[in-house]
């Protein structure tokens, strides 16, 4: 017996009107100032922590850190909440003997001077543009979008088995004279070698 067919039309009208009511409720609900896509709080914080930790597992060329007191700069594009939490933690803290500056950026030009550029999922459509804008610069580009390694990202976060993991493109890092430590490669979910 196929119940769907025998169910009176009235019931489906009920379903439809319930949906309309839901959509109406959703429409009048006060929209929040900003949305951070669908990154959950803990996931975001784990990613923020990884970004900070990467500073210790990547070697930048000398010209990227000309002075002993040149601070590390982490630029974040598209995730203000992550930038704020990372800034709150890293502000005034030193790692590898250098202080850490966290900047929210929007303009690709601003990103070129950063040591790490994190491109949030919502900004992934601009990834190719950002890669191009920073092309000759030793910027470690970190993303959280499927397939981003193919577009020039060096480290891409993936949620796998309920955990935040990352995949690495060694060649993309090489092209920017960034040396990734073997520890980093060991922890990575997978390491891509060879030109994408």
């Amino acid at each position: 017996m196929i119940n769907l067919k025998s169910a009176p039309l009235r019931r489906w009208r009920q379903l439809a009107s319930a949906w309309l009511a839901l959509i109406a409720i959703a429409a009048v609900f006060p929209a929040a100032a900003q949305s951070d896509g669908d990154a959950a709080v803990l996931e975001r914080r784990v990613k923020a922590t990884f970004l900070y930790k990467f500073l210790s597992y990547v070697e930048w060329p000398e010209n990227a850190l000309p002075k002993p007191n040149t601070p590390f700069t982490i630029a974040v594009i598209g995730d203000d909440a992550l930038a704020a939490e990372l800034a709150e933690f890293a502000g005034g803290r030193a790692t590898e003997g250098r202080s850490v500056v966290v900047r929210k950026v929007n303009d690709p030009g601003e990103a070129a001077s950063a040591h790490i550029l994190f491109v949030a999922r919502g900004e992934n459509p601009r990834l190719s543009q950002l890669v191009k804008a920073t092309q000759s610069k030793p910027v470690l580009i970190v993303t959280e979008s499927d397939g981003a390694l193919a577009s020039g990202s060096m480290i891409n976060f993936v949620v796998s088995g309920g955990r935040v993991r990352f995949e690495i493109s060694v060649d993309a890092a090489d092209r920017r004279q960034l040396k990734l430590s073997s520890r980093l490669l060991t922890v990575a979910l997978n390491v891509r070698v060879g030109t994408p």
Binding site: V46, T49, F50, K53, Y57, G162, R163, V164, V187
Partner: peptide, 11 residues
């Protein structure tokens, strides 16, 4: 790094 990648963030 290992501990970080073992934190469960999803159900």
């Amino acid at each position: 790094l290992e501990q970080l990648s073992n934190i469960e963030v999803t159900s």
